[in-house]
Simulated scan of single mutants.
Amino acid sequence: MGFRDRGIEIKTPEQIDLMRVAGRLVGETLELLREAVRPGATTLELDTLAETNIRDHGGIPSFKGYSHPPFPATICASVNDEVVHGIPGPRVLAEGDVISIDCGAIVEGWHGDAAITVPVGEVADEVTELLRVTEESLWRGMAAARLGGRVTDISHAVETYVRGQGRYGILEDYTGHGIGTEMHMPPNVPNVGRRGRGPTLVEGLALAVEPMVTLGSKHTDLLEDEWTVATVDGSFAAHFEHTFTLTDRGAWVLTAVDGGAARLAELGVPFGGR
């Protein structure tokens, strides 16, 4: 493992394989939670399910105790106008809500980090479209990454896709990030920007890409719990995230259960997984 470009961590292939173990655990946990989302469920129930699954499979929750004030839970559970970092608790999910679930796990010192936004029962058509646009922008961002390219090639692809779909707000104050032996590492991965800027994309660099998109304003407030970020105008928000890397064969989505093979193929991107 080496470091270059202002603290960026470059992993060996063997270390990327270890990150894949953590990433798959995160992906499987999120799929378990997706199935558990329903009207009447509480965000605390989802958090308990996530922690049990992670620990039962040899992992440690990345978020629990993180930063200051220490984050108190295993997942971030952000409902409706809450964009990110919502704290699980007694809140009961209702028909028509959406919940963004962010999850991280550590296995043998290596992190995986991913997020999904899930409708609770039937939701408005514009909300369904918001979720589709946000998730697709994530895949378009990863699909734009090439060895020798730059980090903002990803940013530009995310922004271009979202802007081409309608009038949405794209958060600029919260970004994706490098990941490896720590959950948040250089470089930042913005969700807007011009191509060809930022650090070079090289083998061994792992990035968490995470577009956050709203039905209204891009501006947010930090709530009194000092964690939850919500839209200033009360508009619904969506958040999708994957941890991925590039090999000499193509892209490898470490937190997708199938490594991203199916979606990458649809986008014409070579699969670089092992």
Results as ranks from 00 to 15, higher is better:
151 V>Q: 01
13 P>S: 09
215 L>V: 08
222 L>V: 15
205 L>A: 02
30 L>M: 11
223 L>F: 04
230 A>C: 07
18 L>C: 14
253 V>S: 05
158 V>W: 10
128 T>W: 15
46 L>M: 12
163 R>C: 06
77 A>T: 02
232 V>G: 14
85 H>E: 03
201 L>P: 03
225 D>N: 13
167 R>C: 02
102 D>Q: 13
176 G>P: 01
78 S>K: 05
182 E>G: 13
19 M>P: 06
224 E>I: 12
82 E>Q: 14
264 L>V: 06
14 E>G: 09
121 G>C: 12
104 G>R: 04
258 D>Y: 10
100 S>V: 03
85 H>T: 00
105 A>F: 03
159 E>N: 02
209 V>K: 09
59 G>S: 06
111 H>Y: 09
266 E>T: 10
147 L>H: 06
129 E>Y: 14
238 A>N: 00
254 L>Y: 07
143 A>H: 08
247 T>C: 02
109 G>S: 12
85 H>Q: 11
7 G>I: 10
215 L>D: 04
211 P>Y: 00
81 D>H: 14
168 Y>S: 00
194 R>H: 12
255 T>D: 05
216 G>D: 05
185 M>F: 03
144 A>N: 04
216 G>W: 14
60 I>F: 03
20 R>A: 12
28 E>I: 15
65 G>C: 08
158 V>N: 07
270 P>T: 07
206 A>Y: 01
169 G>F: 00
158 V>C: 13
67 S>K: 08
126 E>A: 13
85 H>V: 01
184 H>Q: 07
259 G>W: 03
72 P>K: 04
148 G>I: 03
55 R>S: 12
202 V>P: 03
11 K>P: 04
96 G>D: 11
197 R>F: 10
25 L>D: 00
244 F>S: 02
12 T>V: 13
151 V>D: 00
98 V>M: 06
265 A>I: 06
13 P>T: 04
58 G>Q: 07
219 H>M: 11
166 G>L: 09
21 V>C: 13
